[in-house]
Amino acid sequence: MVGRAAWPLLTAVLLVVGVLLSLGTGRVWLDPAVLAGSLFEPKPNLPWLILSELRMPRTVLAVLAGATLGLAGAALQGLLRNPLAEPGLLGVSPGAALGAVIAIYFGLSGSFALATPMLGIAGALAAASLTLMAGRGGTLTMILAGVAVSGLMAAGLSLALNFAPNPYAAYEMTIWLLGSLADRDWSQVLLAAPFILAGWVCLALTARDLDALTLGEAQAQSLGIDLSRTRFLALAGTALSVGAATAVTGTIGFIGLLAPHLVRPFVGHQPSRVLLPSALFGAILLLFADVATRIIPTAQEVKLGVLTSLVGTPFFFWLVARLRRMSP
């Protein structure tokens, strides 16, 4: 058993290794010596360009999106006190996907590159406000409202695919939905980053409320917690951060579900203490998953969302088995 103090160290090491692997993996090998040598040259050379324009946005995006999914998953599981809660459950990720697909459907993305992420963010916010409006009043109503909104968004996605103007557009939408970090550039990262950071702030502000919810809603309220504020912050934070991340990367499942469960036993299950480690492990998981999509030798690159789902599903079965053991 690793000592208590070793966990932050292990997390940091994994994160650094993930970042270095992500920067170092790709079609060409970048010699660190060449990079370091060219650091002070005024004229950019090819390896440096590959690093700064191709690999770095991808790595930064993996860290941002992974941390977002881990953090939002932890906050939602704390809010709803439900081990299956994740951003997709409340309609946020499908909302972002629908927004982005609409941009592709109407060909907006062709004329204006940032149309996809912008409409994605708008879709996430719309879905979240719908869930919040319909799900006022309690945990169960909120989950049910989220399921209903998710269903609505999924129907919209199918409709867009159904009426796709041409096979190429349908193909583009499907590929986008699978989720990927490939070929994202700085402009997309910079568009999403402010929304992601604003969302993180909202989610972090719920920390103490989530602790109080350990005692159930009545006791949390009696401890001075305004539950409608907590719900609003959690949902707005999820919509902003997950919406912005999904709008750039496409749907990436299971990270938000998996990361909180991975870290929870090591922080004594206290909801506020789950948030940061869950965000860090979300980033680590996504970094490694993204590296894996580049290493696995298939004719076409395995899409990131497909890989996380494939790897995440066995975990889901494990969770079901554990719940069955624990329930009386």
Binding site: L213, L215, G216, A218, Q270
Partner: peptide, 14 residues
């Protein structure tokens, strides 16, 4: 003021 409802439950194994 402290309040304790009927049948309180712990939601997480803290």
């Amino acid at each position: 003021r402290a309040y304790l409802p009927q049948n309180p439950r712990a939601e997480w194994p803290v």
